[in-house]
Write a protein that binds this DNA or RNA. Structure first.
Lengths: 362, 362
DNA sequence: AGAATTTCGGAAAACGTTATCAGCACCCGC
DNA sequence: GCGGGTGCTGATAACGTTTTCCGAAATTCT
């Protein structure tokens, strides 16, 4: 049961270590007959390459680090799943590091992963500003792709959902279903998700009501804030609450329920991200679905890319189009199965996707 | 920006590679003055050990594999978080593998992790039966701890919640709040969570009603099943639905809501696991909170343990006591905030949480 | 003071790969 | 028949550590 090495296979197949390495790695042509002999011996002995030795010699570990703020953030599990699958398909293993929203811990984890010689890093930065130095330093040493959130301009490659496009989907949907007094429950801060969604709302809401772009409340991305925000805004009697993410929407729905408000009759509520809870909430939350599989594929593609000859590759800031998922929280009362939506969407379907569904892209 | 090795540090500090290695690894006493010189040089040059080389030489990678069925299962993120933190505290890095509930993929991942020379494996088996071979084979090569679910008796060490104790907490609570016609919405299969919870229910429910142990419906651990199960059982007018996990409870609540049933007035609903959604559901779900941090700590401890001199260590099957979290879904109408649970359910349990305290586990 | 012991530092051999450099056939065209 | 390609293959040198194994110096014991 002890380890079997190249030497053993070489001895068993009557040739040298070098040849065995060559046939197994396919790095250089080798005689058909010897190749067969080697392969047979390797199979018979149950040879498994020693990644440590390989890594030492070839300076590539076949490993990428995945650094994220909090795996318990309900949007991340699906993203992590998609990422690990995409990377495993490339023969890469994933070292996971959860930094508990602490940029210092994040820096430490990044340093540790670098010393473990990861081939590349995938980072969801904990803090747009305070993560920057560590990320930039790491990006100078290995390919690094930022995901989901940005980290200041021009730091490194990034892959994220097109927040503005998502917000546009939401606003168009609300307009099409007759909502006029909309209001935005957002998050403070400059993190890309917070800022971009807010700006897109401000830019797009004017079409519904000249006052709408000014009805903006900022807190954080939490259920608690969603609850609190409703109290701050309800006396203005909005007919739609556009939330910057699903957690805020969940909180808003809870408070509205307590207040005995009819959703979607009196007010529509929309979220963003399409976390699992959005489908299970009562009522189901209309939201923007992130193209998770495509995001992961794109990130994997960026990591696969070999640096250009001059050492520096052009920086990519990839934004992928999301899709709108219409659920009960935004259906007009009495419009069940409505013909009113021009694209003939089935609004009864909890999982109905109206457009730009990129779930299956690539 | 190129890598700095032991050689460089040795040269810079005017001594040999061996000594540098010794002072940095602290493996053998070395002269105070030289040690200082070495440390200074290492610091100055920004030396970072090469884990690949270290792994090759000392046959230990400082890495453990974490294999799980589906990171998107809502109970796992918190567990993964706790595990990574516990392991990082031991200086171990975590290789994550998600197998999509497929035992074959699981076997492949385990083999891959072994060839990457992980020091140990943490496995949440995808299937009690079909995971067994791969797990047993792996356990013969590295320390392996099963988590959350079992994998047949006597395969290897395992750490899980005490399902029976949790079910007892639930039944006592229901008894104390006057529920009599209880019913169990469980999951088919022999997986430990499914079987143990069901058996504990059957063993304990008799105290409420001689018929109760026989009111058992089996499906799977899903929201859909929870919805469907309500339809099968509601005409018996139970006054409590004991669900085998929170997802089933969520589904049950959805269906009851659709039927216009008053929860908890007409019927109480309880879950198991305390996934985040349990607190956010409307009404909040009374459930059994798994001692996640303790489970992780226990698993880390088992991995740390060095095998006994004779090669085989005694097998541990560790079960940790959970706590009851009482929320609105089981409160007797008009008995909100009822203080004394006469049965003293929670008294001697460190993990017990009485009501809506969802933030601080232990 | 001589011997026995400890303490400290260096040289060098692993660990299991991959990559470089030759060598040895053999075949081609002159 | 003879230089010069072409395959294939084998020795062998890395890769950066850790870990013997040893010698030299310093310390302690008789």
């Amino acid at each position: 049961m002890t380890d079997v090495t190249l030497r053993d296979v070489a001895r068993a197949s009557g040739c040298s270590v070098a040849t065995v390495s060559r046939v197994l790695a396919g790095t250089r042509p080798v005689g058909a007959e010897t190749a067969a002999r080697v392969r047979a011996a390797a199979e018979r002995l149950g040879y498994r390459p020693n990644h440590a030795a390989r890594a030492l010699r070839s300076r590539a570990t076949g490993t990428v680090g995945l650094v994220l703020p909090q795996i318990t953030n309900p949007f991340y599990p699906t993203l992590v799943r998609a990422l690990t699958h995409a990377l495993h398909a490339d023969g890469l293993a994933v070292l996971l590091a959860d930094c508990d929203d602490d940029p210092d811990a994040e820096a430490e984890h990044i340093a540790d992963l670098l010393s473990r010689r990861v081939d590349a890093l995938l980072v969801i930065p904990a803090d747009e500003r305070r993560s920057r130095d560590a990320v930039a330093a790491a990006a100078a040493r290995v390919p690094l792709v930022l995901m989901d959130r940005g980290c200041g301009p021009g730091v490194t490659d990034s892959v994220a959902v097109d927040n503005a496009a998502g917000m546009t989907l939401v606003l168009n949907h609300l307009a099409a279903t007759g909502r006029r007094r909309v209001c935005f429950l957002g998050a403070r801060g400059t993190a890309s998700a917070a800022a971009e969604r807010r700006q897109a709302y401000e830019a797009g809401a004017g079409a519904l009501d000249p006052e709408a772009p000014r009805r903006v409340l900022l807190g954080d991305f939490s259920v608690e804030w969603g609850r609190a925000a409703v109290d701050q805004v309800w006396d203005q009697r909005p007919d739609a609450l556009v939330c910057a993410n699903d957690l805020i929407a969940v909180g808003a729905l809870q408070r509205l329920h307590q207040l005995g408000v009819d959703v979607p009759g009196e007010v529509a509520v929309t979220g963003f991200d399409d976390i699992p809870m959005a489908a299970l909430s009562e009522p189901g939350i209309t939201t923007v679905r992130q193209p998770v599989a495509a995001l992961a594929a794109e990130a994997a593609r960026l990591l696969r890319r070999t640096p250009a000859a001059d050492g520096t590759h052009p920086q990519h800031a990839i934004r992928l189009a999301p899709g709108l998922v219409v659920r009960e929280s935004s259906a007009r009362q009495g419009t069940r199965g409505t013909p009113g939506t021009p694209d003939g969407t089935d609004m009864n379907n909890r999982n109905a996707v109206v457009r730009n569904d990129v779930e299956e892209a690539q």
